[in-house]
Simulated scan of single mutants.
Amino acid sequence: MSAEVTRSTTRRARAALGAAVAVCAVTVALPGVASAEPAGARGAGVERISVAADGTQADGDSADASITHDGRRVIFSSSATNLTADAASAGASVYVRDQRTGQNQRMGDLSPIGPPVISGDGEYIGYAHQWITNVRIRQYQMSTGRTASLNCSAYTCDQASLNTDGRYTAHVVRYPRQPTFGQRIEVQDWNNGGANQNVAVLTHSKPSKPSISGDGRYVAYQDGQTEDVFLWDRTGATTSGPIEGPDKAAALVQLSDDGGKVVYLSGSDTYVHDVRTGTAQLLPNAKGVAIDPTGRYLLYAPRDTSGPALTLRDLRTGTDEIISDQPASAGTDAVSTGGRDVVFQSAADNIVPGDTNGKSDVFARHLY
């Protein structure tokens, strides 16, 4: 791995927390990306996303939702066979729902391995899938119908993270037939003939998780064997970390869209590392889940099981908004800009009226 490694050990404990961005998978362009409708058009409340265009309930389980920065499009996986006319009769598929039109689009014929992802501007989606004996990351471009796979050669690649416009894909490359080779983190530039830049070589076989900033400059990743989190500056060719300091285990959640904040877990707590100051904010006894693109709103799961399942915190004011008081879970990229929308999954049947399908559904809570 390239160069100067610095360590940050200073921290501050606060009730309000901060930032990130991460993910995994392939890519697809979506037609006519536009800004989200005015706040009053949809209004505050919660709606079920995993339904057919006519509102028919999904006949299979749905999960793994992510949302675009403007809140217009939601990507998720589902085993349902009635969400689109071309839905598969068996196995999971990836869908994108346009919240403005209420239409779903099925993305490819391959079953996803892990959560699918969508670029922040809604132009591309991506997901990992089985390819013979390996795993590949497949990209789709909806406006042209073109598809492409990451340049993984004969190896396995997964856990992709897309930057805002989908140009850069950070991902993990593994050597399944030669585990002693460990794995590496790469960034693929789709505008440069699919050229790969090696971010880090990790001489172990435990999972690592990359998360790329909106402009593609920074990549946060986790060394699964040492349980450390690092930040790579692709422009300066420098690596900082472990950002949690020495003698402390950490697991990456997300890197913020501007590359300024890294959210990570350590023990039962969540920390937000400020890249500029080298300090960290603490949210005790909570599991950080996702951060909005501005780094102001943090979605977290309180570890106190008697409370709500998911809560959104305004890190500037320290105020909380309950997202779900029923059992629920969410992944990275679950919060739109400004904390306006949050997507999550739940098998509860009382989040919206008339939920009788007995399946896990994807929901969106609109806060204003």
Score class of each variant (00 low, 15 high):
D247P: 02
S50Q: 04
V335I: 06
K359I: 07
N82Y: 02
Y218T: 01
Y127H: 15
T156S: 15
E123F: 09
P246F: 07
R106F: 07
T147A: 12
Q141A: 15
T356V: 13
V201I: 15
P308N: 04
R73S: 06
Q178H: 12
T164P: 02
T169C: 04
W232P: 00
Y175M: 06
S119L: 00
T294S: 15
S346K: 01
H129P: 00
V5T: 15
T270G: 10
S306C: 06
K359W: 03
P116H: 07
C152L: 08
Q188E: 15
Y124T: 14
T10A: 15
G60V: 07
D70I: 00
D355M: 05
R11F: 14
G236S: 11
A220V: 02
G216D: 08
P284I: 08
G214N: 05
Q281R: 13
A328T: 03
V229R: 00
N82P: 02
P293N: 09
T226R: 13
D341F: 09
I212E: 06
G40M: 07
V343G: 05
G288W: 03
A44K: 09
T180K: 10
C152A: 14
S211W: 05
H273P: 02
A154N: 14
F76D: 08
Q197H: 03
A22D: 12
V135F: 06
V201T: 15
D54I: 02
A36Y: 11
R177G: 11
A286C: 04
I132Y: 12
A200F: 00
L265A: 12
I212H: 04
P284W: 03
Y175K: 07
I243Y: 03
N198E: 15
G18P: 04
E227C: 01
D64P: 00
T203N: 15
G55D: 10
L252Y: 08
P115Y: 09
G91W: 06
T305D: 12
I243N: 00
R11L: 14
R217H: 01
S213H: 05
D98M: 07
Q103C: 01
A128K: 02
E123C: 13
L299Q: 06
R100I: 13
T56S: 13
D304H: 04
R100D: 15
V272N: 12
S111M: 13
Q188I: 06
G122F: 05
H171L: 13
S119K: 08
G216Q: 06
L162F: 02
H69V: 12
T319W: 02
P179I: 05
S8T: 12
R276C: 00
N163T: 08
A90Q: 14
T277H: 04
A58V: 05
D292Q: 03
A249R: 11
A39C: 10
V263Q: 14
G295D: 04
D304E: 08
H171V: 10
P38I: 04
V117E: 13
V262T: 04
Y168R: 09
P327E: 03
S119F: 03
G267D: 09
T311Y: 01
P293K: 10
H69T: 10
P115Q: 10
S89C: 02
G318D: 02
A170T: 02
D361Q: 01
A220C: 04
G216S: 06
M1P: 13
P116C: 10
D54C: 03
M107K: 05
D269L: 08
D233M: 03
C152N: 11
L252D: 03
V187F: 01
S149Q: 14
P327M: 00
T332L: 05
